[in-house]
Nucleic acid binder design. Structure first.
Lengths: 136, 136
DNA sequence: ATGAACCTTGTAGCCACTACAGGGTCAAGC
DNA sequence: GCTTGACCCTGTAGTGGCTACAAGGTTCAT
């Protein structure tokens, strides 16, 4: 497989695959006589793994850890659970943050009476003083 | 006010204030004889505005638009409402995405039986094939 | 033989900062 | 008056995870 083929097969962009290679996430594949990268099935599996983990929001550092663990089949999987659980925790936190944000925005926008800027509640909500002056 | 004072007053880091100045979000303040930046109340208001908008997740491009609008007090505030509503929409989308993610992670982690990697359900969920081989 | 569609390397850009390095200035304390 | 430490200055480089060129080489169909 050439890089374009494996990109199509895994859904990882060509440039991203080369980037992963530079970063050491995937091993450098052998080259053809014309210096094209030549990939096999192991590469495809590894890239698919990375793509799924990235889709689940794992950072590249975490992906690297997960790959290392996945390759060491004897070790207990507690380490894997730990990475995933830590990530889940951060996702929960992020959701909580964004939900608080959503409420604030909802409230702010709900107050807008569509008049002129000088009586805009949204700008009011952002400006520091109630009797607000120009910001510059 | 020196830059450290206004940083303390607004909660915007010193380096970030200088960065905003470079980016043209805040005007360059006058300098003292010793070339220190010297800020007044208008700067403080503008920085506070920026900070609140950033806290609400607006991008710097959006903040710039909001600042322009805030300074033009006669225009109708529909434009402000539009920016805020668009942002709210993206926040809602992000929450939906993360919630779906949370469910997937929940499910994945819930299946972990804490055995060895070779029978780890989390790795399984990431690996491309059911009878999975090494990823490299 | 020509053109399109691929491949190569290397570099720069994105966002919104953050972290230095290597200097200058100022106020307090001795 | 001298030191110390906290501040300030500019400029540059780094962060994450790509993405987008530029400038060239290869392959394949027509």
């Amino acid at each position: 497989m050439k890089i374009g083929d494996i990109a199509a097969a895994t859904g990882v962009h060509v440039e991203t695959i080369r980037y992963y290679e530079r970063e050491g996430l995937v091993p450098s594949p052998p080259r053809t006589a014309s210096n094209y990268r030549s990939y096999g099935d192991a590469h495809r599996r590894r890239l698919t793994f990375i793509r799924r983990a990235r889709d689940l929001g794992f950072s590249l550092v975490q992906v690297r850890e997960l790959l290392d663990l996945a390759d060491d089949r004897e070790r207990p999987c507690v380490a894997v659970d730990e990475i995933a659980s830590k990530h889940l925790l951060r996702v929960r936190e992020k959701i909580a943050e964004l939900t608080a944000l959503r409420k604030e925005l909802d409230h702010m926008i709900g107050q807008c009476r569509h008049g002129s800027i000088s009586e805009c509640r949204i700008i009011d909500a952002l400006a520091p003083e109630t009797g607000r002056g120009p910001t510059r």
